[in-house]
Write a protein that binds this DNA or RNA. Structure first.
Lengths: 161, 161
DNA sequence: ACGTCAGATGGCATAATCTGCCAACCCTGA
DNA sequence: TCAGGGTTGGCAGATTATGCCATCTGACGT
């Protein structure tokens, strides 16, 4: 897990990164086959990529809709006073809400954060907002956009030399 | 891959979903151990979850920063004429750009889509915008917010019923 | 041109894991 | 109490992962 890395990826490493971003559970044998290397060096490279911190981890993608989360919204938050304590507190509180899938601090004259949230329906949205987000100290404005259709999500990072 | 599912998840299934969202490459043996079941039924359940479509797939998380993508932006797009053809064409063109990590059709008086993009720097941003996004037919307005800090991303979907 | 050497590869043996099968078990309802 | 469906646990064979070592490749200096 060493963040600083000279970062010299040859074709093999690039192919590995591309493939495991698409098929995170591919076996080392098939991976090796697809990149045109034998299993031994392939596994060594994969492990090296993991150790280097370039591969942060593996996730299963779960269909939120099937779990009952039928509503996705982008919530823009503005804070009244821009002190580090306020920000830290906000981030901590928001991280404790499982419905908040993502939290980005962004630029914008009227906005400080964008949250991506998943809730069952409008009721859940209202509850989350009024009971858990608006009450956080320093939150002065909230504006939401609802997601009509996720055209695509969770795309892999492009890996080109 | 059958989207329609009565969806009755007991504690075991819930634990499986939680764990593989955190450790997508966990071995079946360890998974079984952690949920308190022997490997056989654990693997059967996992396969059933995959077959049911609840598990959409597995991904490796790659550190975009280490790959040189130091700038992340949220780009809001407005379209001039809201015809299905325009939308379909826009989505197709945008899907062909590897820097576009996410594309959501959203509500908003002035906005139709939000894109999440990753580029190396401001130069890359400018190029992407001027050469590939603005020219798409129907795009009438573009407004961007830059991500100052990704507080957190890629969280698992909560599975609680 | 030649030899040296570090780094990477491929193959092999062993260990670990996956996978399919079957008997045993636990509910539930009659 | 007695079926019967559904689920579990264990086992054997197949597949995969892992560590080790000899070999190969390419860069460098002589």
């Amino acid at each position: 897990m060493k963040p600083p890395q000279p970062l010299s990826l040859d074709r093999y490493d690039q192919r590995i990164l591309e493939l495991i971003q698409q098929e995170g559970r591919i076996s080392n044998q098939e991976l090796a086959e697809r990149i045109g290397l034998s299993p031994s060096p392939c596994l060594r490279r994969l492990r090296a990529l993991e150790e280097s911190g370039l591969i942060l981890g593996y996730r299963a993608l779960v269909d939120a809709r099937q779990l009952g989360y039928r509503l996705m919204a982008l919530v823009h938050i503005s804070m009244d006073r821009h002190t580090p304590e306020r920000f830290a507190n906000f981030e901590r509180q928001v991280a404790a809400l499982p419905q908040v899938q993502e939290c980005l601090m962004i630029t914008g004259q009227e906005v400080d954060y964008q949250l991506k949230i998943r809730v069952e329906d409008m009721d859940g949205y209202q509850q989350l907002l009024l009971q858990h987000i608006t009450p956080i100290e320093g939150v002065s404005g909230v504006h939401s956009n609802f997601v009509l259709r996720p055209v695509f999500e969770n795309r892999g990072v492009p890996v080109a030399p």
